[in-house]
């Protein structure tokens, strides 16, 4: 079995989000870049499957400029076998999925994180599956290989299901798919030097959406106080004003 893991390069989750002057673009100065946390879990699960046997190769694929290479090297250092970077600035989910469709054809299992922690698009995985005309399962919290057959767990409202799905399959994965992401070992970091990182030119595709601008949320308002003897008022506020109940 060959596995492809889609990797997005995102700002570290502790990054203070800022935009440049006219709020038109994300300010990348001083930003630490990491593997998108959900993609990292996907990769972790792929490695576990490989260690359990039955997986011959794990490839990672990313759409990005050469600035994303440290992130790809890290994925290689934790154990991916080779990497493909499609040399283009990611524009929107459709653009990214279209680029990936060029290189994603010969895999039995494609793993995509459910969303990226920057644009929270949640689109690339499903789009890619549609473009490749292969099956997909979303909200996947478990993937295993039993006698060469794929077993998949997915979350549904208020529960979960186990499924059997034919290959090739694209699984859109979320929390639960693997435990903690791996930390690269010295040996892996050393081996990553010599693993192939293939750069592919982008396909000529137009994005279908355009980010026009950004806003930051209003600063936190002062705490709204409710009287001790009228505590029920709190529930009304949470229900009607905050709408969280």
């Amino acid at each position: 079995m060959k596995i492809l893991v889609l990797i997005s390069n995102v700002p570290d989750t502790t990054t203070k989000i800022r935009f440049t002057g006219d709020n038109k673009a994300f300010d990348t100065s001083g930003v630490q870049w990491i593997i998108n946390p959900w993609d990292e879990l996907a990769l972790t699960r792929a490695l576990e499957l490989k260690e359990a046997g039955g997986v011959e190769k794990i490839t990672i694929a990313n759409v990005g400029t050469n600035a994303t290479e440290p992130t790809l090297r890290k994925a290689l250092a934790v154990g991916a076998d080779d990497a493909i970077r499609i040399d283009a600035e990611a524009k929107d989910a459709f653009f990214v999925a279209s680029q990936l469709a060029q290189v994603a054809k010969d895999y039995d299992l494609i793993l995509a994180g459910i969303e990226s922690s920057d644009y929270n698009g949640a689109g690339v995985g499903g789009m890619l599956a549609a473009m490749l005309d292969i099956h997909s399962v979303s909200a996947v919290s478990g993937v295993s290989l039993e006698n060469g057959e794929l077993k998949v767990q997915r979350d549904i409202d208020g529960g979960n299901q186990s499924l059997s799905v034919p290959t090739p399959l694209l699984a859109v994965v979320q929390k639960g798919i693997a435990k903690d992401p791996r930390i690269p070992a010295m040996r892996g970091i050393m081996m990553a030097r010599s693993k192939p990182l293939n750069v592919v030119p982008p396909a000529d595709v137009e994005a279908r959406t355009e980010f026009l601008g950004y806003e930051l949320p209003e600063p936190k308002a002062a705490c709204k106080m409710v009287d001790e003897d009228n505590a029920k008022e709190l529930i009304r506020l949470l229900h009607e004003e905050a709408k969280v109940l």
Binding site: E69, P70, R73, K74, A77, I183, P184, M186, I189, R193
Partner: peptide, 14 residues
């Protein structure tokens, strides 16, 4: 180097 940063990050993560 990329590797030095990766080691730093690995130690930090741990």
């Amino acid at each position: 180097t990329e590797e030095q940063l990766m080691i730093q990050q690995a130690a930090r993560d741990y």
